[in-house]
């Protein structure tokens, strides 16, 4: 598996460039990945979404849909698109250290 250095750590990544193992994730990694995606700082809104995604993934093994995030994370749909422009679910999952989402909605 490919590796790369993120925030000073050598980390395994999958073919989509997402972390191969979500347990090595920390907030510094999140910030560096966010910057690469054009998000310069992680606000409380970003963090709400990230922690919601990580909690859901840990308990169900799946990344929640946009609809679910919009309803349950405390950040609504409009805000989600503002916080993670040009691909909210894909970007949020990557920053959260999770694999690329597989759902269509």
């Amino acid at each position: 598996m490919e590796t790369r250095v993120i925030s000073g750590k050598t980390i395994e990544i999958d073919t989509d460039g997402n972390l191969a193992d979500h347990t090595v994730w920390d907030e510094n990694i999140a910030l560096e990945l966010a910057k690469e995606l054009g998000i310069d700082e992680l606000t409380d809104g970003h963090k709400k979404v990230i922690h919601y995604l990580r909690d859901e993934y840990k308990s169900s093994g799946e990344i929640p849909t946009m609809r679910k995030i919009g309803k349950k994370s405390g950040v609504d749909m409009k805000e989600l698109y503002k916080l993670f422009p040009d691909g909210p679910l894909k970007k949020a999952a990557k920053i959260s250290g999770l694999p690329k989402p597989k759902s269509c909605v």
Binding site: T65, M66, R67, G70, K78, Y81, C104, V105
Partner: peptide
């Protein structure tokens, strides 16, 4: 089951998505 919303909510979602 796939989390696809009913029509009215889908329209709201689309609009919020820009």
């Amino acid at each position: 089951k796939l989390d696809i919303p009913p029509v009215d909510e889908f329209i709201e979602m689309l609009s919020a998505a820009g």
